[in-house]
Design a protein around this nucleic acid. Structure first.
Ligand SMILES: [Mn+2]
Ligand SMILES: [Mn+2]
Ligand SMILES: [Zn+2]
Ligand SMILES: [Zn+2]
Lengths: 144, 144
DNA sequence: TCTAAATTTAGAATAAGTCTAAAGCAAGGA
DNA sequence: TCCTTGCTTTAGACTTATTCTAAATTTAGA
């Protein structure tokens, strides 16, 4: 068993989610390819060769994984939600030109910022979303 | 003409959008009630008494206003997009319990943070999204 | 091995948002 | 004022994304 699959199995263990074949496939897809895929993209990828998970199951697992904190739901430009393996914290960059979502390294808000900003609310997490033009789109001079 | 409606008219002026009755109604609704409403909620509110704007027009104007920067599209818990008048910059807090979105006062990232985080990307805007439990839901002890 | 709870599934159903084509308006030039 | 042209609005059909349903299967644990 590879180190990678051990890591996934371990992840299921610690959040006490049954490691079914379908659930494993969904998480594996997102963890291997560090993309921000839509449910439809995941469904297609998993079933390209032979049927591995139904559409409902892909959604079910994205939600159970998200609730467990192993997957994160991100909203970019389009209306379909996007998902990424959330094994390590990070911020996001959304390209307003091509719609791509990219990971940015995590950094903490200066201590005190989040507490004072949120008042009496209980902050469990935060994320900074940057918007602009990605490197690829900046290169495409003049094209809009 | 009230100071408020002058302000809206002014806003249309500066972004050179025609101040049609329907477009005005959409922006007025969001600017008066500082909510984060879905397109459906806005449509219902505008047409409660008599027909004021069609569904397509509500969407059309939300998009034209968003492109002009007068309105912002926010994604909370549900799948429907939410909109707010964006006349002043602010951050957001999303309650994971009731789904409500609340405004937080704006504060800048420490200078250098955003530039170094984003690498060669061109950052046009950023927003911090906090998640947790709102004051109202914290009060509801024990209830989940 | 047995049982109860969790999971999967195909397909129907719903919800959110977009598109179309025709009609209505508004700004600016002649 | 009268055009012309480009926005804008509209109803309703349509597409896309996501959820629901109810029956079959699988899983963990006793
Ligand atoms: Mn990510
Ligand atoms: Mn807001
Ligand atoms: Zn791009
Ligand atoms: Zn709440």
């Amino acid at each position: 068993m590879s180190k990678f699959s051990e890591e996934l199995a371990q992840a299921f263990q610690t959040v006490s989610l049954r490691p079914t074949a379908q659930r494993y496939a969904v998480l594996e897809f997102l963890a291997r390819r560090r993309v921000h895929a839509t449910a439809a993209e995941i469904f297609d990828a998993l079933n390209r060769d032979d049927p591995r998970a139904s559409r409902a199951t892909v959604y079910n697992n994205l939600h159970s994984l998200a609730k467990a904190g192993l997957v994160r739901e991100v909203h970019g430009e389009g209306k379909a939600a996007r998902f990424d393996a959330s094994l390590h914290p990070h911020h996001h960059f959304v390209c307003e030109t091509c719609g791509d979502i990219e990971d940015l390294p995590w950094f903490d808000l200066p201590p005190g910022f989040s507490r004072s900003a949120a008042g009496k609310r209980e902050v469990r997490a935060y994320e900074i979303v940057f918007r602009g033009v990605c490197v690829r789109c900046r290169g495409t001079r003049g094209v809009r």
